[in-house]
């Protein structure tokens, strides 16, 4: 069974004036159908305003479809009685590291979710220790969140979700406000969770180099899914990506140009090592 499945999902933001009359309707997500299998690492790419964050908020039952349906682990998000089970199943990490940490001490923040779920005390302590170790923040457990770097704060937030034992974690641009070091820390932690704990990951981002490790990529534009495929398939379509004004890694872009100039290089070069390898092959043939 799919862990996340959307069927013809449409979501309209309705703007109202002071009297409550409808001023305008913006369709943020437009007839999107997709499904995610348990254990997959999914990346969703797109510009600000492409609808990717709106889509993400449906998976955690923070927003509800205007039309269509969303199923999380078989539960319909439109059904009120599923609400808390859905939020337990699909955890969510947000963009701003400061605005999602509730506790004044790292370990207390991580315990917040399990406390809300009514987990017994001994088990909370176990879960908190486990989760902090999984993201490499155990040694900071007694620290105040205000003393951590952005990347560390985001890892605490991930641990906070992890302690709820979710099957799926949705990360809504977790790296947008971080510096390169923090970005790497977060992506490394997320990748490890997917590989080791087999947790389904849905990573929303606009940094192309963060999606290289994903199993599948969706590119969103104007509320639609514009492209879908493995990272390699996506990166083979350099012209389309450029038309959507998305970043293409410099190495990929370079390989693409070389190919256009007549070199026999495969499509979708993702890393420096692959570029070196491809050029070696060309040189020796």
């Amino acid at each position: 069974m799919e862990i996340v499945k959307t069927k013809n999902l449409t979501f309209d933001y309705i703007r109202r004036d002071e009297d409550g009359n409808v001023e305008g309707i913006t369709t943020a997500v437009d007839n999107v159908s997709l499904s995610v299998k348990p254990g997959e690492f999914i990346a969703i790419l797109g510009h600000n305003g492409s609808g990717k964050s709106t889509l993400a908020k449906h998976i955690n039952a923070i927003l509800f479809p205007t039309e269509g349906t969303v199923f999380v682990d078989g539960m319909d998000t439109n059904d009120d009685k599923n609400l808390w089970d859905i939020r337990k199943t699909a955890g969510m990490v947000f963009q701003n590291p400061d605005n999602q940490i509730i506790g004044q001490v790292v370990e207390e923040d991580v315990g917040f979710g399990p406390e809300n779920m009514g987990v017994p005390t001994d088990e909370i302590l176990e879960r908190v220790a486990e989760s902090l170790k999984a993201v490499g923040m155990y040694e900071f457990r007694k620290k105040s969140p205000n003393r951590l770097s952005g990347g560390q704060k985001q890892r605490v937030s991930i641990a906070g979700v992890l302690a709820m034992h979710p099957k799926c974690i949705v990360l809504d641009e977790p790296t947008a406000m971080l510096d390169p070091i923090g970005r790497k820390e977060v992506i490394r932690a997320v990748t490890a969770l997917n590989m080791v704990e087999k947790i389904t990951i849905i990573l929303i981002t606009h940094y192309m180099n963060e999606i290289v490790g994903a199993d599948r990529v969706f590119v969103m534009d104007k509320g639609h899914i514009a492209m879908e495929g493995t990272p390699r398939e996506i990166f083979s379509r350099v012209e389309e990506l450029k038309a959507l004004r998305l970043d293409v890694p410099q190495v990929t872009s370079c390989a693409h140009e070389l190919k256009k100039r007549g070199l026999n290089i495969p499509d979708g070069i993702l890393t420096e090592a692959e570029l070196v390898e491809a050029l070696k092959n060309v040189y020796h043939s």
Binding site: N209, P249, Q250, V251, S253, C254, E257, E272, A273, L275, V276, L279, K280, Y283
Partner: peptide
């Protein structure tokens, strides 16, 4: 920059490319 780094890697692999390059073009 990523592209500069790639040029270093190419040079290390035996290609005679300059490493003072900062744009894809």
């Amino acid at each position: 920059p990523e592209i500069t780094s790639a040029m270093y890697k190419l040079r290390a692999a035996g290609f005679d490319v300059p490493t003072d390059i900062i744009t894809v073009n």
